[in-house]
Nucleic acid binder design. Structure first.
Lengths: 184, 184
DNA sequence: CAACAGCGTTCAGTATTTACAACAGAACGA
DNA sequence: TCGTTCTGTTGTAAATACTGAACGCTGTTG
């Protein structure tokens, strides 16, 4: 993440000079200069102060997508899905909509072989997620509670709640899931 | 925005001590301590380094909603899904996560019997949607282009593009879909 | 051609943040 | 009780970020 370039792009988008922004933000122009040239890594408080002159929140600043638009591909054949498995564990996670620049949904076709596990340490991230089990059986733990999912069962919870998926059975499980916002 | 309290909450949620997190992140425990006590305002680079030990992105960190984890229903048996079919046509649409107060995702298990259709007039609403065909074949039209989906195929597009689903075949089609924001 | 006003950059000094190491308190077992 | 090991806090020295005042550059105006 290039903080400097990001700030400069936003500043110019707003039609502000370094000095103008500095004045509004209550910092010096040299601070802006050095941040934009990445010759310093600003403190949270000073970046916040700088952004207040735009104005813009830290969330906005970091989540702003400066990429281009227009993904045209709509349909993805089964073979076109890209595998985003973490390598280490054996869970297969295939992402739908690879051509989409900034997706709002991470829509996955996941396969949990017997014995697979998303890991001891609980996952916890922003957003919400839902899923539906197509084949096999799967064990889901959310906030300490453990559930058994069978074919056709589904789930929905806030991603911030610590969670974990595990397949302790001897048949593979196939799960279709959606997470928003997308973390891939 | 209380950066310190936020970091501490996340760290404890992950079950890490200051020293453990410090070790993973490649910083010292005192750094963590002072950040959490708000006796310093960390630089972007050091906060990023700290978060890498969790791991968590800056976006996630700042946008994380630390609100309550109200113990709502997590798992829904196949029989618990609620049918939100529009009555008129024969497409069956079953919603996952009915107990969820204000959902971000509309996650549906849809069945298109032979001859069914979402309607002549194109659907078009805000947001994005994705889906994966589990069984059968289905015809999808987006922005005038018509695609044939077969079992295992998927799609992803902006909901604002006019779209229509149709099953002109003589076997039912089963589709798992996700739309955000939720329109139900 | 000055003189000026704007731009962004750079340098030296000051203020802040970070690392390292020591510290006090709590929990556990010998 | 003592020793060990964990927890988080804190003092001091080194590293880094920030300020204020330069600088060189460009375009405009008299």
């Amino acid at each position: 993440m290039d903080v400097g370039a990001r700030l400069q792009t936003i500043r110019k988008l707003k039609g502000l000079s370094q000095r103008e922004l500095a004045k509004r933000a209550g910092v010096t122009n040299s601070t802006i200069s050095m941040i934009e040239k990445n010759s310093v890594s600003p403190s949270i408080s000073s970046l916040k102060k700088v952004l207040s002159g735009i104005p813009m929140s830290l969330v906005e600043f970091f989540s702003l997508d400066l990429a281009d638009e227009s993904a045209t591909q709509v349909v993805y054949k089964a073979s076109e899905l890209i595998d985003i498995s973490s390598g280490a564990n054996t869970v297969s996670m295939r992402l739908i909509g690879k051509a989409h620049p900034s997706r709002a949904i991470a829509f996955l076709d996941e396969t949990y072989p017997p014995g697979s596990d998303t890991g001891m340490e609980m996952l916890a991230h922003e957003g919400e997620e839902a899923g539906l089990l197509i084949e096999g059986r799967l064990e889901l733990t959310v906030s300490g509670e453990t559930y058994l999912l069978e074919s056709g069962d589904s789930y929905y919870f806030e991603s911030s709640r610590p969670h974990r998926f595990r397949n302790p059975f001897d048949e593979p499980a196939r799960l279709i899931s959606a997470t928003t916002p997308a973390n891939f």
